[in-house]
Amino acid sequence: MYGVTNLLLIAVILINFFTLGSSRLNSCIRAVAAQGALLALIPLAAHGLTFHTVVLGVGAFALKGVLIPWVLLRALRQMRLRRESGPLIGYIPTMVLGALITSAAFIFADFLPLRPEHRGGLFIPTSLATLFVGFLLLMTRRDAVSQVLGYLVLENGIFVFGTLLAEAMPLMVEAGVLLDLLVGVFIMGIVMDQIQREFSTLNTERLSALKG
């Protein structure tokens, strides 16, 4: 059981690298969708089949794996965008930074005062790495779609952390988080639409023109 979970978590990290290095928005969105789908499997793999994990898994899969990517892909099609405008500091430096963050997360996780049963597993480093890769995406990308993706990856990191505590955390809290996510994406969708109308581009750097 533990082996499957670890493989899933490694796949999650690999998808992090992919999103950092890929220049096509389409494949980026699909990768993040795949990450969400994988995440949905993790509670099942880690804690077995219970009502709690099934609800969590199905909810996460529907939202992260299907609904949000579908919305994003639709938005992309409407805006006729295929390739993003590129990160602020180039793909290779972003990827290198991502690798540094991941390695640092692994080393840092060994120093955390964890309970013995959480020690040695991949949950904590994966969640930290994913969280910071999400931040990295948010910081280095210019267009709004990629920033939404960064936000999603960030949330995925939190989700990994949450699954570690799936038994301790009430269902309502997780439902609330997922709902927040959905609302967040919708708000970003509206913002994206507005940016697109105003500047006919999704480059958020243009927003700086709005400051007084």
Binding site: F17, G21, I92, M95, V96, S103
Partner: peptide, 11 residues
């Protein structure tokens, strides 16, 4: 791609 591969190997 090659840099990405190297990073995966580092991982």
């Amino acid at each position: 791609i090659l840099v990405g591969t190297t990073l995966v190997a580092v991982f």
